[in-house]
Design a protein around this nucleic acid. Sequence first.
DNA 1: TGTGAAATCTTGTACAC
DNA 2: GTGTACAAGATTTCACA
Lengths: 165, 165
Amino acid sequence: MICLHDATKYFSLMLLDETDKTLLKLLQKDCKQTNKALSNVLGLSVTAVYERIKKLENSGVISNYVALVNKEQVDKSFVAFCHIKLVQHSQDYVVKFEREVAKLHEVLECYHISGDYDYILKVLVKDMQEFREFMVKKLTNIDHIGSTHSMFMINEVKHTTTITI
Amino acid sequence: MICLHDATKYFSLMLLDETDKTLLKLLQKDCKQTNKALSNVLGLSVTAVYERIKKLENSGVISNYVALVNKEQVDKSFVAFCHIKLVQHSQDYVVKFEREVAKLHEVLECYHISGDYDYILKVLVKDMQEFREFMVKKLTNIDHIGSTHSMFMINEVKHTTTITI
DNA sequence: TGTGAAATCTTGTACAC
DNA sequence: GTGTACAAGATTTCACA
């Protein structure tokens, strides 16, 4: 787990060789593989794999290990993207909006972006009714929101957490 | 790992009690916790935790376990969102576009959406120059693309893989 | 059906080379 | 970087509510 005071560890970027990159690819696909299985693929000893993983963890390249949940299996199949414009862009308004939006568990992602709108949000709920509730009771209750524009997911073409290095 | 013929396992939604939900919350935050540590938090035996996790895996609620990589640490800090409109919406064009886009490793997410544009893509690259290369050499080389509109991330306010159930 | 305790087998981790 | 040795965890079996 990454703590605030660990930030000092990340001043310099770690140099990754091809073996590190392959290892990261494997771990991003399945982090429950045993070091023995990884050692077979990489052609290294178990200890070498162990040391490399520890180095990737300590340098902050690997931030954490998580279980991914199938949204359909937990009845959260409705994905919406909300564009948001603030009424003003003073430091005060921005900070407050960002803090409030981060608290909403329906919001999986929120980015400050260039363009016509200030923010884009990815929202995950059960269905259109729950989305309506979310908009009326939660999102638009946050101060300083000027306008919103929502788009709904028809189909998920691709969704990966794997970064190709 | 989920295989095609495993799909039969997921016909019915698994009913989750409060303990399951807490367990999922814990595993979505950190899947490397030992069953013993989880059993302490949940007030269950190690076996009970083990059985519950196996059930969540077999029912498809947990799809897989992955390492999350810090994009800044691997020099992929530039995030762009691309809206894409197709010239036509015949089955043929749609299928082909979706297949091609899924192949691009820079595209982490791609959704078919409602609204003015057909698709929204989340693209991850090193910098603006690499993004330009991506657009010119890869994305716009895909057939049937009518128009695109890109937005760039200024700041990441929130990004989680945790679904709150 | 779901839970707890002990037995065993596998894996992670540390150390010497 | 490798191989070995020991500690720790995962997994199975069986008894019990």
